[in-house]
Nucleic acid binder design. Sequence first.
DNA 1: CTCCGTAGTTACCTTTTGGAACCTGCTTGC
DNA 2: GCAAGCAGGTTCCAAAAGGTAACTACGGAG
Lengths: 112, 112
Amino acid sequence: MPQRPKPATQPPLPLDCPLESVLALLAGAWTVQILWFLRAGPRRFGDLRRDLKKVSTKVLTNRLRVMEEHGMLERTVIQSNPPQVEYSLTPLSRELEPILDCMESVGRRLPR
Amino acid sequence: MPQRPKPATQPPLPLDCPLESVLALLAGAWTVQILWFLRAGPRRFGDLRRDLKKVSTKVLTNRLRVMEEHGMLERTVIQSNPPQVEYSLTPLSRELEPILDCMESVGRRLPR
DNA sequence: CTCCGTAGTTACCTTTTGGAACCTGCTTGC
DNA sequence: GCAAGCAGGTTCCAAAAGGTAACTACGGAG
C-alpha cells in the first residue's frame, strides 16, 4: 500500500473537450427526437405532437422556438384555411444528421 | 389557396424513433463530457472535477453514481492513504465512443 | 496546531423544467 | 348551432436539477 498518492494522475487534462457546441445544440428534452422525425421530410405541428407521444403542446412549442432561434429549424406558414405551419431541417441541422445515424446504429447493437 | 388542408401530412409516423435507449444513457448534464475525459484512460474524482470546470462535487458525485448504475462506469477504490477512487469506461460505454467521435468531427466543422 | 488534499455527504435554497388544463380564432362538416 | 381540427398561448403547480456552504475522516507538510 503506497504511503503517499501521486499528486494527480494526469496533471494536464487529456485535450480540452470540443463537444460543447454540439451538445449545446442537442441539449434539451425532445430535441434529438424532433430532428429524427424531421429527417424524413417537413412535418407540421400536429404531426410532431403525435410523433412524440407524451409531449405537451407547451413544451413542444418551446422546443420548436428554441431550435428555430438556434437555426436548426425552418418554420413555414402555409397560407391555407386554417393556416398550417410546417417545420423542416436547415443546413445546420443537416450537419447533425451523422450523429443521429451513429446513435441509431449504436442503439441497435445495445442490449434491450 | 387550398380550401381544406390535407387531414395529416404523413398519417403513419416515419419509423418509430430507436434512439431512446441511447439518449437515456447520454442524458444529463456532464455525462458526455465525463465519457470524453475518460477515453484517454482512468481518472480519479479530483481529476474529473478539474476537467469539468464549473461542476460542483455534489453534482459530479450524482452523475458518477447514476452512470455507474447504468453500467457505464467502473468505480475502483485504490487502497492507499488517503484512499483514492478511479473511474474508468466499461464495455457498454466503449460502445458509445463512436458517437463521441462523430460529435467531435461534426463540432469541428460547425461555425464557432 | 493548522492547513492541504483525498472523496465524498448533507442540508438548504433557487432555478429550471415539465405537465395538465383551459383559452383563443378560424373554418368545415353534421 | 355544435363539435372537430388546426396552431398555438396562458396560467398554475409539481418535480427535478443544480448551486452553495458546511461537514466528515484520514494522514502529511510546515
